[in-house]
Amino acid sequence: MSATGSTADTTNTGRNETELERADRKWAELIQEVRVAQTGVQILFGFLLTVVFTPRYEELSDTDKTIYIVTVVLGAAATGALIGPVSLHRLVAGRRVKPQTVEWASRLTFVGLVLLLATMTAALLLILRVATHDGYVPWLVAGVVVWYVLCWFLVPLLVRFRHTTK
């Protein structure tokens, strides 16, 4: 028996840790990951908020203004999802639901990453449309999106499926 009152379990993890120790470890890992994503989305969101106050904003076409508004809303949603785990933890701390907190925080983080992908896509589309006005912009943006999806989702899933049993 461990100090938490449950026996250590190495099932599927290869670690000698209790459920609560595993939840604590996963929480620490998740928070480190969220810090990276939060920083990026907050910088991007802060930059987006300033665009509307520049003289150039009035010169944008209606389509570009729509893209800008969608980008800001996506950025706000991504910020909310990526800050959500902190609020979740704070509101349930001490309630003995750490494993469930980790699971929900992980879901919020994944949603935040998808929203960050959408925000970056929309921001890139807007910036390249304004900078070049060329027809190849959607193709450039699509290429970058494919790269993000490959790096953020496909490679991790490939590693997961090739090197884990769970």
Rank of each mutant, 00 (worst) to 15 (best):
L82Y: 05
A3K: 13
G5N: 01
V73W: 04
S87I: 15
M120D: 09
V102L: 05
V97M: 12
A93F: 14
T11F: 10
W104A: 12
V137W: 02
S87A: 13
R90K: 15
G46R: 04
L60V: 00
V92R: 14
Y148R: 06
L117G: 12
L124E: 06
S106R: 15
K98W: 08
E19N: 08
G112N: 01
T13C: 09
K65C: 06
S2A: 12
T119L: 05
R160K: 14
A122F: 07
T121P: 01
Q32M: 09
L115F: 11
R96V: 04
V72R: 05
P156A: 07
E59F: 12
L157T: 12
K166I: 11
T54W: 04
K26L: 15
E58K: 09
D9C: 12
E33K: 13
L125G: 01
V146C: 13
A23G: 05
V97W: 04
D24M: 10
D62A: 14
L150M: 10
I67E: 01
T7Q: 13
V102R: 04
L44A: 15
D24K: 12
T39N: 07
R90I: 07
R15V: 07
Q32A: 14
L113Q: 13
E59R: 09
W104Q: 12
T119N: 02
G94S: 09
L126F: 04
A122S: 15
F153H: 13
G112M: 06
A131R: 03
V114D: 04
T119V: 06
I83S: 07
P138C: 09
A8F: 11
V155F: 13
I83K: 04
W147G: 08
S106G: 15
E19A: 14
K166V: 14
V145Y: 02
G84M: 15
L113D: 05
T39Q: 05
T7M: 11
L117M: 09
E59Y: 12
L117Q: 08
A8N: 11
L88H: 07
A77T: 02
V36P: 00
V70C: 07
V34L: 07
V159D: 06
A23D: 01
V36M: 08
H163L: 15
V52T: 09
Q42K: 05
V144Q: 06
T11P: 01
H163T: 08
K65Y: 07
L82I: 03
E103A: 11
T71E: 01
L44V: 05
T11D: 10
R25M: 13
T164P: 00
V102Q: 00
V137M: 01
